[in-house]
């Protein structure tokens, strides 16, 4: 796939930099029956972001955006930890947290599809109020819990592999199944690619959009469980803070256009890995970790400029054919970086 070329190159470069600074970077060892190594760490710490980004990919493919996922992360973790701290069963706690997440996502979808509010505005409401809700659930405290079963989700191992990684793989598989085996992907891409044509072809876009926002929230809820499980506590204020921005970034780096249409789950996973590897790299090459944000800014700028048709035309113009002055000015330009 040509559109995955650039993300792959960037990831490879990042890994290369790491290998130069830490020669044994690529080695993976077996310790106490668990897999260890820098690569494993990248996957493990990047798991929540990958989850959130997967959901975000589908939202963006419909031409939308979801700013509220960070708040959903906090709410889900808070609710699960609260339940467990009140001696509820882990399964019940998890089910309750995920159920609430789906409900919140459906609410977003309802605002976007049925009420007709712009996605960025509609999800802003939950982004703001959701933080308050999360704190309401935890009563402003950081709820600390001790529960080995719950710990498994974000911090445990299964068959030597960190459970979080397995969870991401499972969600990826389920998502891939939904969008590529079932017809969800086709209908999402149709709605995002040409909403009016889709309506005239009988696509029930309202339902699709609600499902997609609900799914994004479900992914965020799962990420919330993972994060709170990993630290055995729920912090309504800071859990998942700004993860929506990283997720959007991962999707964009992965080659899915913010205008909607064609999407790539593989690209998104790559994008999330790039962001996580960037963080790891900054630690490993000895640059102060505080500068991570600077590099992120740089990556966002470069990726968006490369994908911008106007930038290509104006700055890289000479290397390309002049754009044909076709009689279709509204046509979307394909983004294939």
């Amino acid at each position: 796939m040509r559109r995955l070329l650039w993300p792959l190159v960037i990831l490879a470069l990042l890994l290369l930099v790491n290998v130069v600074f830490t020669p044994n970077f690529l080695s993976i060892q077996m310790r106490d029956g668990h897999l260890y190594g820098s690569l494993i760490d990248i996957l493990r710490f990047g798991a929540p972001l990958m989850l959130v980004s997967l959901g975000m990919t589908l939202v963006i493919a419909t031409g939308g955006i979801d700013l509220s996922v960070g708040s959903v992360v906090a709410i889900s973790g808070a609710l699960a930890c609260l339940q467990i701290s009140q001696d509820a069963g882990v399964a019940w706690a998890v089910a309750l947290a995920l159920g609430l997440s789906v409900l919140l996502g459906a609410w977003n979808g309802f605002l976007v599809a049925t009420v007709g509010i712009q996605p960025i505005i509609a999800t802003l409401i939950l982004m703001v109020a959701g933080r308050g809700l999360a704190q309401l659930i935890t009563d402003g405290q950081i709820i600390t819990i001790v529960n080995p079963a719950y710990k498994l989700i974000g911090g445990g191992y299964l068959l030597a592999v960190p459970f979080g990684i397995l969870l991401v793989l499972a969600v990826l598989a389920v998502t891939a199944f939904l969008v590529r085996r079932l017809a969800l992907g086709l209908l999402i891409e149709a709605v995002g690619g040409n909403a009016e044509a889709s309506r005239l072809a009988g696509v029930r876009s309202k339902g699709i959009i609600i499902v997609v926002y609900a799914f994004a929230a479900l992914c965020a809820g799962l990420a919330g469980l993972m994060i709170s499980s990993n630290v055995s506590s729920a912090d309504g204020n800071n859990a998942g803070l700004w993860i929506e921005l990283d997720a959007i970034l991962a999707v964009v780096i992965g080659g899915t256009s913010l205008l909607g249409g064609r999407f790539s789950l593989g690209g998104t996973i790559l994008g999330a890995l790039i962001i996580q590897t960037l963080t790891t790299t900054i630690y490993s090459i000895g640059v102060p970790p505080e500068t991570t944000l600077l590099f992120k800014a740089l990556v966002v700028t470069v990726v968006c400029l490369i994908q911008s048709p106007a930038f290509r035309a104006k700055v890289l113009g000479r290397r390309r054919r002049p754009p044909a002055p076709g009689p279709v000015p509204g046509e979307k330009v394909r983004v294939s970086a």
Partner: peptide
């Protein structure tokens, strides 16, 4: 300038600006 000349959504450009300014703080 970037928003206008390169026709990139304000959301993304100012997001990069947000990262940049915060990052500069920490440096």
């Amino acid at each position: 300038f970037i928003i206008h000349v390169f026709e990139i959504q304000p959301f993304i450009v100012t997001l990069a600006g947000m990262f940049l300014a915060r990052g500069l703080c920490y440096t």
